[in-house]
Design a protein around this nucleic acid. Sequence first.
RNA 1: GCCCGGGUGGCGGAACUGGCAGACGCGUCGGUCUCAAAAACCGAUGGCCGAAAGGUCGUGCGGGUUCGAUUCCCGCCCCGGGCACCA
Length: 843
Amino acid sequence: MAEKHYDPHAIEPKWQAVWERDRLYSVVEDDERPKKYVLEMFPYPSGDIHMGHVRNYSIGDVVARYYTMRGYNVLHPIGWDAFGLPAENAAIKSGTHPAEWTYANIDKQAASFKRMGFSYDWDRIVKTCDPEYYRWGQWIFLKFWERGLVERKSSPVNWCPSCKTVLANEQVIGDGVCWRCKSVVEKRELEQWFFKITAYAQELLDDLQKLPGWPERVKTMQANWIGRSEGAEVDFTLCDADGTPTDRRITVFTTRPDTLFGCTFFLLAPEHPLVDELVAGTEFEPAVRSVVEAAARESAIERQSGEARKIGAFIGRYVVNPVNGEKVPVWVANYVLMEYGTGAVMAVPCGDQRDFEFARQYGLPIPPVVVADDDALLDKLRGEGGRLIDDVPWDAAYDGPGVMVQSGEFTGMRGGKGSEGSKAVTAWLEERGLGRPAVNFRLRDWLISRQRYWGNPIPAIHCDRCGLVPVPEEELPVVLPMDVDITKGETLADHPEFYRVTCPRCGGAARRETDTMDTFTCSSWYYLRYCDARNDEEIFDKEKAAYWMPVDQYIGGIEHAILHLLYSRFFTKVFRDMGLVGFDEPFTNLLTQGMVKKDGETMSKSKGNVVAPEEMIARFGADALRAYILFMAPPDKDLEWSQEGLEGIYRFLNRVWRYVCDVYEQPGSAASGGSRADALERQRHRVIGKVTEDVERFQFNTALAAMMELLNAASEYRRDVPAEERDGEAEKRVARTLVLLLAPYAPHMAEELWHEVLGESESVHRQPWPEWDPELARAREVEYAVQVNGKVRGRVTLPADASAEQVEAAARELPKVAELLDRGEVVKVVVVPGKLVSFVVRG
RNA sequence: GCCCGGGUGGCGGAACUGGCAGACGCGUCGGUCUCAAAAACCGAUGGCCGAAAGGUCGUGCGGGUUCGAUUCCCGCCCCGGGCACCA
């Protein structure tokens, strides 16, 4: 018989050892049972675990344990996203090698996860810094290369001066700062490696519709990030210095071809190569130069703040507007982005706020071409195809739908985004070879090279004769050398033993690529590796992946709404096209958990408000900590840490413990227990139903509340009814139910009670989920609220199957109600079955 | 500026599909036990008026629909997040 006293510090290590010895959570493919793949985003081995980890992995653990009890074959793996900059920073600070620091932290975190009692299949562990793992990342790189998805190109890239490396666009967040260190990033023109994620832009957007199990807000963020725009490309003819049209064309992208007649100037980005070419040696050069230089000096913040002053200069050339043959001046302007579209823009000041401001600033004409239906200008311009008016009495551009005016043969048509007029103008241009329908995306290619040491080496070789040469597949992995002294600021580029190679193609002297891959490449496919983690023949066995994938439930932080989740979707689609997997999307359902806060702020060392999970385990045990973090709030909301709340849950676990022990030591003795025992049994069924429903919609807080209610009711029954009148079997059913329902939340305590008090021999975590009968759960009697003119004036208790007439009659008999009804005329009676009666009285 | 979330007691949070607002927990107050304290147990606990019965107000603010609104509609305010010169 168990100790009467609940002692988490004795039972938790005991069961952790048993589970590990029995490999309780190790799984293999099994066609007899339906599978569930429950996955939490794997951690970065930063050191001690924090409350965010506790929350993330507790949620996943409850889900995994629940589905196991429901009879599913559940895959629930863990691993470490182990490459990355903090290891290098730690190395510089303390002199330990990044590898040493990383592996020590992994061991530390793994020990903490075991102390938390998480049900991981430890046989499938993955560490991305192991050559056995990263070699497949290199293999992926080669396969992407074969498929034309790898590109090395020069472009303006984001440079983090603090991390001393380039960053992908997704990794520049907020006001132009680095996602990791929050430093302001700089723009640099560099030659870098890219993955061509834009080749999948349309599909990444379309397939969001295949994800009903994802939060709307994540899908919206991704859709905005991809940023699809529909419109047209329009070719403008460049004139020579004398104003004579040449045969050179400059193409622009526009979403508003219907406004082409309102184009009164033409803009080039400061970085546009034509600027230099066209202006060199002319009288316009000094003014243009100063604009270009001013633009280059603008920081990311200034440029993105929207308040940056618009500046520009005429470059002395003209282009011909294809739709009306008009010559319009070409300007350089700082608000035109080289990275979007073609780096050239047709300016329509009446319809675009930026162009409007620019025109006003430099005194350029603003002829209206699309006017709102209620605009006074319409009276004057309706049906006017020519240019009657050259300015507008507006103080802002109008970009809404309206009537086309001063637009030649298109005058009178509906204008606006995607309008009839837009389509007509595009068709007209296409017939004459001057334009065509086009789609543009905001999404850019994924810059994957990093100028850092602690990462996966890019398997490529630079040969003076052969150019860029992939490392042959059979030479993988390109092993990251361990003898790089990071404390001296060394990288692979300082390591001749690493980069001096012979070219695999011509055998001549060549130089190995010394950049490493973005760590997000490591985390874009780890969920597939879990399906077959120990395979050293191939990336994973297709059959095994086909069995487990896709991930049925993915759980992680909202901060990856774009980054990791977009990259993983991209990898999955490429893998599908390679024939490795047979599905489009890796994560069927996604749960984004909220942050754990203290005093309204995120916990951080610098704020000194960190609550260490290990300390809480030491005081109250892992079970209490797990249950508490789930009880505090629904998982997707931020939660506020409070020590007192944890003590409350600890008390609850103690009460469960005592109740179960008491019931099994001294059960009631009556053969059948009468109405109170019936009511208790009814509640037991109801609570099982409630807890089941709540786990499935991730309302762990209300599931625990329901268990508390059951315990409260059972305790009152025990307190109020003497032993000889109590139904001992009913009490034992409640105790057993509580143990089973609590097993996913407090796995150690449940296991201890299951074995030592209930006397069972098989693990509680292998038991079927308790069954319930909705029929038995239904109440026999219902209390009706009786309202008169919307206010509750009395209550009646009636059998659950009472008819509306019976309910109304009973309500009318209440003295207070009768009195109120007598005061006037009853004009309406509403009976809501099982809930209330409402009388409407006039008079 | 645009797009998403969210505003409910002293606190964390409940409330199915429009049906008794505040489940459950914390805290607080009172009590039992104790020489005392802790623990445990019992009871009270949205505001205001009232000795009580009861009344009345109350889910960010202002309107509306309805017998009935935390829930639906319109207009605002505040907080959090995302995007932001994307043509």
